[in-house]
Write a protein that binds this DNA or RNA. Structure first.
Lengths: 210, 210
DNA sequence: GACAATACCATACATTTGAATGCCATTGCA
DNA sequence: TGCAATGGCATTCAAATGTATGGTATTGTC
């Protein structure tokens, strides 16, 4: 009664732990033991210690289900941003109550409630790689700096544009030569937030369509 | 000392637990207690029990960090895709061992281990709105259909291109008139996977750069 | 005021779970 | 042969953690 060939077993241990972690369900040492068919807790424990030594896992001392993948243990924090279906005509909060779904966002430095997402309509921003149907993830803020990509409400409509202010006047500039900039008085524009991320979900089927 | 207004607190408890779950780090009752500033474990415990009653959480009996989101087996499910820093020269698994970080991905229909992400270099795909520095999220698969956006390995390099096959020959087509298609024998190309999503993280500062 | 409902607290208890102690079997090498 | 290295086992201990008991203060309603 000895052992198993090469480092095969440890590879299986790592794969098991990694998959569980990626699925959001960190395993216990005993779950590893059972999954791999060890008859002693210690055996699973030793493999895990080994993986930590090799830097492939990170252990939290005395924490239940404390193993993590290196790099994901710190900083990375995921929150859900609601995808607003209707254009927010009034207060944003009203629209959030009935979202089209949620997008997981790696939010470092942005509180959960401060994020939302909108689907882009029109081709006014194709010059900066934002195509119709893309999702923009927005962090709420009432102001913007020149050059910021913002979501602004003009009248009843919300649009994604590049922000630029000239004194009392605000210019919402499209990034497509076929469209003209919108210039308004600052009082006629409400900045809903700043675009912090752009996503295009291609899905399982279909090509680029180009 | 009494309490806090309406059901505000419970909402915060739920948000905290949900965020932690989505981040792949289920919290303990005491972590909830501490995060919300309760002075008794029991208080956090009661809120959690309440959330379970309301069906907003699911509890695992006597399991450490046992709270889950209901229906997490189906519906929106977030997994973390490793961002591969180096171009995968050999097997993909080797590169996954040392990722640059992880991206939260809403993976419906894709197993956790089947996803990874790469940072795009070069301007060969600007025609379909993929700019240098963008992140592509890829689902591993060894084959592709005409028109698919794929990550392929040619020699030591991995590139993002539109896939097209003509008999024994494979064409990797850039989406930028300034670049020429790459035409190779099928044996000289290895399909690493298919691009299912494109992301551009603009961050808190800076404009569009266009 | 009586009473239910809500929110919270202090503490104890039981289970889960990470870590430690000590030992055996196989392999490879000097 | 001797011996270090590896892979495994059985068991125990201690920390982490879910759960339960019992009590106080505030709010709202009849």
């Amino acid at each position: 009664m000895g052992r198993t060939p090469a480092g095969e077993t440890r590879e299986k241990v790592f794969a098991f732990v990694r998959d569980r972690l990626l699925a959001g369900q960190p395993p216990t040492v005993r779950e590893v033991q059972e999954a791999l068919g060890f008859r002693a807790v210690r055996t699973a424990q030793q493999h895990l210690e080994r993986l930590v030594e090799e830097g492939r896992l990170v252990a939290g001392r005395h924490r239940a289900r404390g193993y993590r993948l290196p790099g994901s243990s710190e900083g990375a924090r995921t929150v859900l941003a609601p995808v607003l279906g209707r254009v927010p005509a009034g207060a944003l909060d009203a629209a959030v109550e009935d979202p089209d779904g949620y997008l997981p966002v790696d939010a470092r430095g942005a509180a959960a409630g401060d994020l939302f997402a909108l689907r882009v309509r029109g081709e006014s921003m194709t010059g900066v790689g934002i195509l119709p149907g893309d999702l923009v993830i927005v962090r709420r803020q009432p102001t913007a700096a020149n050059g910021d990509l913002v979501v602004a409400r003009v009248g009843d409509e919300a649009t994604v544009k590049t922000f630029r202010s000239r004194g009392r006047r605000v210019e919402l500039r499209p990034e497509n030569p076929a469209f003209a900039p919108i210039v308004l008085d600052a009082g006629a524009v409400a900045i809903l937030g700043k675009v912090i991320e752009v996503r295009r979900i291609l899905g399982a089927h279909g090509g680029t369509g180009a």
